[in-house]
Design a protein around this nucleic acid. Structure first.
Length: 401
RNA sequence: GCGUCGGUGGUAGAGCGGUCAAUUACAACAGACUGUAAAUCUGUCGCCUUCGGGCUACGUAGGUUCAAAUCCUACCCGACGCACCA
């Protein structure tokens, strides 16, 4: 039993982990002493969906939960109003309480594929506005006196901005401090978060030390990145949301660049590390078509969120659509009257955003009526019944009344 | 408050009286090629069009001009410097 636990803990602090502070042994020794630890993950409730990037630390949080530790999902509803200074669109609109609650509901639903929110050791959701919004100026000052400007300047981004003569606002300085205070307010043992949050989390560690004389541990998880170290999700388009349908999710993963395969297996699936090593070898040997590995990756990921059955369906759908050039199962059905122009049909159904776009697509030879096997070449083509393909990925079916 | 510089398309960032719907890069979209991709090459990339052109756009509002993203005035916003205050 004990050995079993040790192995588990070992994998727990290895897989997908970028770094641990103060050290891995520190955390392990606490666990092995049987301490029940409280560990949290902070999330900015800025959007309605969680995506696979969020899922990585959540998965690790889940592992802690399974190992019997108390886990907290912290909604940074207060901090979200300021925005992390790394975020370029920092002056984002303030979220109303209502919006936050809506987002929360969605998050909970989406995260429940991974975390358990009920039962004996249920994951807890907290909001940092609960303590941060109640602080008065005096509190803020005493908090601010715990940190020096120099400490803040350790952050590369601030340093860079100073060198470039770009402004840094006081509230941006405050951001790491606020986030750091979360740790104190909840009196946690540890925090988990993305590699990019290292600085903020370490501020929390410092603050814990000065205010509570407690060694808070910090676990940073790797971010999804390809083999050249380029971060994933920058373009957002192919970062699957946890709420995506099995078809969308599968498709998005398949559109990932090949370099992401290994990283994806490690961070987003439950495939054992030993097997991932083999996958890595397969890729290097070039004996296996990376596409097939990626299909497995997509299937593994989709089945976590949609179950194996749907995952399989998504795969079949994908094969039909892209490899056999067949029509996907769930395409938009459009009903139109006789002799309506195709432009108008597409425009009213928002398949194209303007007549100009339609013309461009036609000129580029991107639109085909599959049923009639007819490429649309005229701007004034009349809508005909059948399935249309627009580009590679868009489909719609037109029915004539 | 004074002064300097600046506010341009999804982003970065040119243009500084006509040749500007606006160079270029990135992103995006389509085509070719492929192994779903990526890379590469080609094309497109404000809206409308009878394909001639029309309309709306370079912070906001006016003005000067035959003509303004470009010049002038006022205003708004931002950065930086100086002063004031402390």
């Amino acid at each position: 039993m004990e050995t079993n636990n040790n192995i588990k803990n070992n994998e727990l602090l290895t897989r997908g982990i970028a770094a641990t502070y103060p050290s891995k042994d520190f955390i392990l020794s606490k666990m092995n002493k049987g301490e029940k630890l409280t560990i949290y993950l902070g999330i900015d409730p800025t959007g309605p969906t969680l995506h696979l990037g969020h899922a990585i630390p959540i998965k690790i949080l889940r592992d802690f939960q399974k190992a019997g530790h108390k886990v907290i999902l912290l909604m940074g509803d207060f901090t979200a109003m300021i925005g992390d200074p790394t975020d370029k669109a920092a002056v984002r609109k303030q979220l109303t309480h209502k919006e936050v609650m809506v987002n929360l509901k969605n998050y909970k639903k989406q995260a429940s594929a991974l975390l358990s929110f009920s039962g004996k050791n249920a994951a807890v959701i907290k909001f940092n506005s609960k303590w941060l919004s109640k602080m008065n100026f005096e509190d803020v000052l005493s908090l601010a006196s715990q940190m020096t400007v120099q400490q803040m300047l350790e952050r590369d981004m601030f340093d860079k901005r100073i060198k470039e003569g770009k402004p840094i606002y006081i509230n941006e300085f405050m951001y790491p401090l606020m986030q750091a205070y979360d740790s104190v307010a909840m009196n946690v043992d540890g925090e988990i978060g993305g590699n990019d949050q290292t600085f903020n989390m370490l501020c929390g560690r410092d603050l814990m030390k000065t205010m509570k004389n407690k060694e808070k541990f910090v676990v940073t998880v790797k971010l999804l990145e390809d083999n050249t170290g380029k971060k994933m999700g920058k373009t957002e388009g192919n970062m699957a949301a946890l709420s995506d349908s099995e078809f969308e999710m599968y498709g998005k993963i398949m559109s990932w660049t090949d370099g992401l395969i290994v990283s994806g297996f490690e961070l987003c699936t439950n495939v054992p590390m030993s097997e991932i090593e083999n996958i890595k070898k397969d890729i290097l040997s070039e004996k296996v078509n990376p596409r097939d590995l990626k299909m497995r990756l997509a299937r593994e990921i989709v089945s976590i969120y949609h179950g194996e059955k749907k995952s399989k369906q998504a795969e079949e759908n994908f094969i039909n659509t892209f490899q056999k050039n067949e029509i996907p199962d769930d395409i938009e059905n459009i009903t139109v009257g006789i002799k309506e122009l195709l432009v108008d049909t597409f425009l009213t159904n928002k398949i194209v955003s303007s007549k100009g776009e339609f013309r461009r697509l036609v000129d580029g030879g991107a639109i085909t009526n599959l049923d009639l096997d007819k490429k649309i070449t005229s701007h004034t083509e009349v809508s005909e019944a059948g399935v249309y393909r627009i580009g590679k990925k868009r489909f719609c079916k037109i029915n004539i009344i």
